[in-house]
Amino acid sequence: MNASIRVLSRRELNRATLQRQQLLHREAGSVAELIERLVGLQAQAPLAPYVALWSRLEGFDPDELSTLMTSRQAVRAGLLRSTIHLVTADDCLMMLPLVHPVADRGFRGAFGKQLAGADLDAIVAYGTELLSSEPYSRSRLRDVLGERWPDWDANAMAYAVSYLAGTVQVTPRGVWGETGPAALQTIESWLGRAPDADPSIDALVLRYLAAFGPASVADVQMWSGLTRLREVVDRLLPGLRVFADEDGRELYDVPDGPLPDADTPAPVRYLPEFDNLLLSHADRRRINPAGRQVPLPPGNGAAMGTVLIDGDYRADWRHHRGADASLRVTAHNPLTPAETEAVEAEAVALLGLIGSPDTPVVVT
Score class of each variant (00 low, 15 high):
residue 323 A to Q: 09
residue 187 I to C: 12
residue 358 D to Y: 08
residue 356 S to H: 14
residue 66 S to H: 04
residue 40 G to N: 11
residue 314 R to F: 03
residue 48 A to G: 09
residue 101 P to V: 07
residue 134 E to R: 15
residue 4 S to A: 12
residue 332 H to S: 06
residue 322 G to T: 06
residue 203 A to T: 15
residue 12 E to R: 07
residue 324 D to R: 15
residue 34 L to W: 10
residue 38 L to E: 02
residue 348 V to G: 01
residue 176 W to D: 01
residue 146 G to K: 04
residue 195 P to V: 10
residue 180 G to Y: 09
residue 271 L to D: 02
residue 252 Y to L: 02
residue 303 A to N: 15
residue 98 L to F: 05
residue 87 V to C: 01
residue 189 S to P: 02
residue 67 T to V: 05
residue 210 A to C: 03
residue 111 F to L: 02
residue 132 S to A: 11
residue 179 T to F: 02
residue 67 T to P: 00
residue 292 R to F: 12
residue 62 P to Y: 10
residue 144 V to C: 05
residue 43 A to I: 09
residue 29 G to C: 11
residue 18 L to V: 09
residue 306 T to C: 14
residue 30 S to D: 12
residue 227 T to K: 08
residue 278 L to N: 05
residue 347 A to V: 07
residue 261 D to N: 14
residue 125 A to Q: 11
residue 226 L to D: 03
residue 6 R to T: 14
residue 264 T to W: 11
residue 306 T to E: 15
residue 4 S to I: 01
residue 116 A to H: 15
residue 317 W to E: 05
residue 316 D to G: 08
residue 21 Q to N: 04
residue 301 G to D: 02
residue 355 G to M: 05
residue 2 N to F: 04
residue 45 A to M: 09
residue 290 A to H: 11
residue 38 L to T: 12
residue 172 P to A: 00
residue 358 D to R: 15
residue 182 A to V: 05
residue 148 R to M: 11
residue 328 R to L: 09
residue 173 R to G: 01
residue 82 S to E: 07
residue 308 L to M: 00
residue 29 G to M: 06
residue 209 L to T: 13
residue 55 S to K: 14
residue 290 A to N: 10
residue 211 A to I: 12
residue 138 R to Y: 03
residue 193 R to Y: 00
residue 70 T to I: 13
residue 355 G to W: 06
residue 202 D to K: 11
residue 168 V to N: 09
residue 87 V to L: 04
residue 130 L to V: 04
residue 133 S to A: 13
residue 346 E to I: 05
residue 112 G to R: 09
residue 43 A to F: 14
residue 96 L to A: 15
residue 130 L to A: 10
residue 100 H to A: 13
residue 230 R to T: 12
residue 322 G to Q: 03
residue 297 P to S: 09
residue 199 P to S: 05
residue 53 L to R: 10
residue 244 A to T: 07
residue 298 P to C: 02
residue 235 R to C: 04
residue 61 D to R: 14
residue 267 P to E: 08
residue 97 P to S: 08
residue 256 D to N: 14
residue 26 R to D: 04
residue 51 V to G: 02
residue 78 G to P: 07
residue 162 S to H: 06
residue 260 P to D: 10
residue 274 F to Y: 15
residue 296 L to M: 12
residue 171 T to H: 06
residue 210 A to V: 01
residue 136 Y to W: 08
residue 64 E to P: 05
residue 44 Q to W: 10
residue 107 F to V: 12
residue 142 R to P: 00
residue 135 P to T: 11
residue 245 D to H: 06
residue 208 Y to M: 13
residue 84 I to K: 03
residue 33 E to P: 01
residue 262 A to M: 11
residue 87 V to W: 09
residue 257 G to C: 07
residue 115 L to T: 12
residue 332 H to R: 10
residue 159 Y to T: 01
residue 101 P to C: 04
residue 137 S to H: 08
residue 289 P to A: 07
residue 248 G to I: 09
residue 149 W to S: 09
residue 214 P to Q: 00
residue 169 Q to A: 09
residue 182 A to I: 00
residue 75 V to P: 03
residue 251 L to P: 05
residue 85 H to C: 03
residue 236 L to Q: 07
residue 8 L to N: 02
